[in-house]
Amino acid sequence: MPYPALFNAKKALARFPGWSEPEPETDYIWFNAPIEIAGVVETSFVLHGGCIRTVPDRNVTFELRCSAPSKKRTMPIARIEWRSLQGGHSNRRRKGSAASGKRVSETHHHSFDLNWIESERRMRSGNLPQAEEIDQEIQSFESLLDCVGKLFRINNMRIVTCPPWAYDLFNNGR
């Protein structure tokens, strides 16, 4: 199925596999949930979710990823970052683009439409290099799930459980 059709379809997570064990070097935890469209689980089309176990309520990523079964390469087609530790995002400067050169905040949306070149029927080079602000305030992980569901057209995001974050009452982030 072409990328625009995949993105625009009404979707559901076929199952939530649970969060991974943390990576030893980074403490990153993640899941890849298969996606179904009209009752059919699509080939190699997943929702990737990730965050850092020791950094609660921050730096959460949700990304729609496609791949061909025979290829090792995957293609992200949309991504949402919530309270990124990387200090937001900077768009490339491009003539004629309203998003050109803009810095967007730590919570932002690498939308499919901003990163799809219709005239060439392909995604922009790089890793979803264009992003825009998200209009609504996202105060909690549950609110984030609702936002991702709305922007990615996934109707059952609430089956994703809250990450097993390690809270440290004495060393909270600031």
Partner: peptide
């Protein structure tokens, strides 16, 4: 400490 630098990665995020 996480330090964001004025160096961009392919996604447009800052090298941190």
């Amino acid at each position: 400490h996480y330090i964001n630098l004025p160096i961009t990665l392919p996604s447009g995020a800052f090298a941190t």
